[in-house]
Design a binder for these strands. Structure first.
Length: 447
RNA sequence: UCCUCGGUAGCUCAAUCGGCAGAGCAUCCGGCUGUUAACCGGAAUGUUGUUGGUUCGAGUCCAACCCGGGGAGCCA
């Protein structure tokens, strides 16, 4: 039997006899010809079975194969521009077929299906090429995140998932029973990250986070993955520089490593090719002015039929505002210096203008929303205690956090990047549920 | 929590004014050497989300509930 090779590497075996093992993705028969599209996890390859080239038994096996049956085929690799597949352009001239597991009738045909049906069959849907492509891009994004951080002096120190109290005290948490004591699934590792920088300088945590919000939109999951870098001796301005280099690297890495996947997804690459430092930076004041000018003109929110709603200075942006602002730029855009009153207690107020704080969100283009949120953290213990009290939070659980400012406080900053929103943006998907193998959504956790 | 749209064959959908439950695809059988969601011929396919109500008669109208899509708020 010739050596088993991956479909992705077929281009290196033209003219050679090789074997491919995988699953039957699609089949069309035309008398003495069978076109078997086989996927092996690395790609999809058309395998052509001509009656004259195989034994009668093998030809019959080919006829009996049902969609998703597992099999091995052997044959000669040939460059063929007509051949469909991923990457495509190569096909296998089959000489031998071995059926392994004949599949029962497969529920997901290569036709249209509704979201509800596909989500109920998520364990099978991930075999479909668009889902396969998105999840492979996700894997590359995760690798790019780690590679960039690891090679820029960041130490990966993961933070706990079980936490004793609300980290930010705002959003809804999943409560669990911790041996009789209430505990919560983490919605951020940030406070622990801040402890870790005093030991390691630059750190990141990377793991799942949990939000029990009753959110049912294309941008929300109950369980999502977030990478949170945190840096000692770092100002807001330096943080933005880190973010734009980091995000640009992730996008360029996908362009470089995921060509076939992005083609399956039919992604318009020109949007991604533009993503390079520097990103535009706009002050909250400026963003409010832009929104209100648009509202006064009656501009519509891009992609929706509704006009841009006006906003009062001091209010937080709603989704329509973010979508409008992001659409004014062809790269991700930083919006910085949000009002102190609407942001988390630990964000550093601006020195000569304490009503705004040294915070920054990064809005992705094309309506993908906020992909990072970060800030310079408050570094003075007295001011921090006052902020905790102003937010009506109990001081006792935060004593350790205040300690960080008592023992060698430094200016420091950090941000969190949502993996699923980043994947959705890079892939051009319209819903984050397709960016993770088994999404946990409001009222939906099966399979 | 609120707003909005939807639930009919395995899947995607249709069904006029309240009047016999219909297509395409998938499946099975037959045909074809270049198919790209192939095509051609044939076969089989139903608790119309649930419960109750109106009516001679309900997929269609009414009520409640269940499930799902999109959005708001909140957020990454």
């Amino acid at each position: 039997m010739p050596p088993v090779v991956t479909i992705r590497s077929l281009k290196d075996h033209i003219g050679e006899e090789v074997a491919v093992q995988g699953w039957l993705y699609n089949k069309t028969e035309k008398g003495k010809l069978q076109f078997l599209q086989i996927r092996d996890g690395t790609g999809v390859c058309q395998c052509v079975v001509f009656k004259g080239n195989v034994t009668p038994d093998d030809f019959e096996i080919g006829q009996s194969l049902t969609q998703e049956s597992s099999l091995m085929v052997a044959g000669i690799v040939r460059a063929e521009p007509r051949a469909p597949g991923v990457p495509g352009g190569f096909e296998l001239d089959v000489r031998y077929i071995e059926a392994m597991g004949i599949s029962d009738p497969y529920p997901i045909s290569p036709k249209e299906h509704g979201v509800e049906f596909l989500m109920e069959n998520r364990h099978l849907w991930i075999r479909s090429s668009r889902q396969w492509a998105a999840l492979r891009v996700r894997a590359v994004i995760v690798r790019a995140i780690r590679d960039w951080l690891d090679s820029h002096g960041f130490v990966n120190i993961d933070t706990p998932i079980i936490t004793p109290a609300a980290a930010e005290g705002t959003t809804t948490l999943f409560e669990i029973d911790y041996h009789g004591e209430p505990a919560y699934l983490a919605q951020t590792g940030q406070l622990y990250n801040e402890a870790n920088i005093f030991a390691f300088g630059q750190v990141y945590c990377f793991g799942p986070t949990f939000r029990a919000e009753k959110s049912k939109t294309r941008r929300h999951l109950q369980e999502f993955w977030m990478v949170e870098p945190e840096v000692a001796f770092c100002t807001l301005e330096q943080l933005m520089e880190i973010e734009e280099h980091f995000v640009s690297y992730i996008v360029q890495r996908c362009l470089n490593d995921c060509g076939p996947e992005l083609r399956v997804l039919e992604r318009d690459l020109t949007h991604l090719q533009r993503v390079a430092p520097p990103f535009p930076r706009i002050h909250y004041d400026e963003a409010v002015a832009m929104i209100n000018a648009a509202a006064a003109r009656g501009d519509l929110v891009p992609g929706y039929d509704d006009p841009v709603p006006p906003i009062e200075w001091g209010g937080d942006f709603g989704s329509p505002h973010e979508t409008y602002i992001a659409a004014q730029f062809d790269k991700p855009v930083f919006v910085h210096h949000y009002p102190t009153a609407i942001k988390a207690f630990y964000m550093e107020p601006e020195g000569d203008r304490p009503e705004v704080c040294r915070s920054v969100d990064l809005l992705a283009p094309e309506g993908y929303g906020e992909i990072t949120g970060g800030s310079e953290r408050m570094s003075d213990p007295g001011k921090l205690i006052a902020a905790i009290e102003r937010h009506k939070l109990p001081i006792e659980p935060y004593e350790w956090y205040v300690d960080l400012r008592r023992y060698g406080s430094v200016v420091h900053s950090g941000f969190g990047l949502g993996v699923e929103r980043t994947v959705a943006w890079v892939c051009g998907l319209d819903h984050v549920r397709e960016t993770i193998a088994f999404p946990r959504m409001l009222n939906t956790m099966r399979p």
